[in-house]
Design a protein around this nucleic acid. Structure first.
Lengths: 224, 224
DNA sequence: CGTTCTTGACGAACACCGTTCGTTTGGTAT
DNA sequence: ATACCAAACGAACGGTGTTCGTCAAGAACG
């Protein structure tokens, strides 16, 4: 049995790929949606583009930079409500919910988002909208800046948590087991709430958390 | 030049290590504190213990499990206030601040915490204290369970964010650069707040965020 | 039209990583 | 003294991000 030494003539593949930043990012996001985060490596993305890992370094200086671009691209889909008759809290809430949705659309993006500081053009656009809502709520600039940070942090954390759990759901089983073994005498509150702690699809819990944080922000605005 | 084939006699190293779970975890935490998170690999921990990576698998089935144990060990240091004359909000706040401090003591632990669901004995102890405070605040069980989840998530996110930034601070520079280029006409709010967005040591901002979230939780309790 | 120059593509290699397999070994029970 | 057993571990497998030097194709220029 003889090993064919020469590869297919370079002419066999018609023109190869032009290869561009956008194409790479699109492929990576596609891969992220179909496979998990742990399958999105530089090499896998390169393989999906039918090339080697070194080729991508022409367009991105590092994997981190690629991920940042992926994140910014995904954040383009965040919808910003027009300034209408709704309250500023409602507007804020709708932005944050859209933000969460954008992150969750590609599982794993949440973990990327919490490891980097998003500062792409999409982010700036979102910041503007959030600051606008906060200003209408009466927060001064410093408070608004703090609020912006903490609000986005919270939403990002929600997405990250879900990303991680989606990846390896064995941690949930671990939690259930722990809760089942709780001693009623030693930890009565936990024991009583052991069902509530794992109930819910998470969605309503997250919604409630976001609302609560906005409410808290509003309260500190009033008493300032 | 001849390669010395035989290693040092096994007798040279007096009795080797007894090697135990606790010792491994302690070494790993030490390594995490001194070096960064990216230096805490199975192999590095094993090397610090003067052994090979395979040896650790006797005590931990995977790196993830090791990290979970590290996390739980670190959370043992969270201080729970006695039920005194202070308000339930103040008690809750003090627990969460201690939680944050425990995570931040070892940079990188935050990222571990957000990727796993802490369910060790230390966590249960903390849950009990938090649920107790929330019950005093008048929250019913389901709400309290949600609040517990969101509060710990937020604190964990704070620690994770700081862990990531500490690892590679070049993202901060990226942010500063982005803010410097903001067009005043296109994004007036962001431009006006560009200083406030990077000011502060983060500590006061985080404190404020935690307080705001607690406040929000309290509000929803009142109106339930 | 022929030649130089630039730049994207990429094969190969480096130093890591988590994990597994099979063997060795030291202490304990028989 | 012997048999056993679990801890220790050397070596390897398949993966990772990144770097380096080379190659080819197109542009620019004489």
């Amino acid at each position: 049995m003889e090993v064919p030494r020469k590869v297919v003539s370079r002419r066999a593949r018609p023109a190869k790929a032009p290869l561009s930043q956008q194409q790479i990012v699109a492929t990576a996001l596609e891969l992220l949606a179909s496979e998990g985060l742990h399958r999105v490596s530089l090499r896998q993305v390169a393989a999906a583009l039918d090339t080697g890992p070194a080729s991508l370094y022409v367009y991105f200086p590092s994997l981190t930079e690629l991920q940042a671009t992926m994140l910014d691209t995904a954040l383009q889909q965040v919808r910003l409500p027009k300034r209408k008759g709704t309250s500023w809290q409602a507007r804020l809430r709708s932005i944050l919910l859209s933000y969460r949705e954008a992150l969750m659309k590609h599982p794993g993006l949440g973990l990327i988002a919490i490891s980097t500081i998003p500062s792409g053009p999409s982010s700036v656009r979102i910041w503007e909208a959030i600051l606008d809502a906060l200003a209408e709520g009466g927060l001064d600039m410093d408070r608004a800046a703090w609020a912006l940070d903490q609000l986005l942090l919270h939403v990002t954390a929600i997405a990250a948590e879900q990303s991680a759990q989606g990846t390896h759901a064995e941690g949930v089983a671990q939690l259930q087991q722990t809760l089942a073994r709780i001693s009623p005498s030693e930890h009565p509150r936990v024991h009583a709430a052991r069902r509530a702690l794992v109930s819910g699809n998470g969605r309503s819990r997250q919604d409630w958390g976001i609302t609560a944080l906005i409410e808290g922000v509003a309260v500190t605005a009033r008493e300032s």
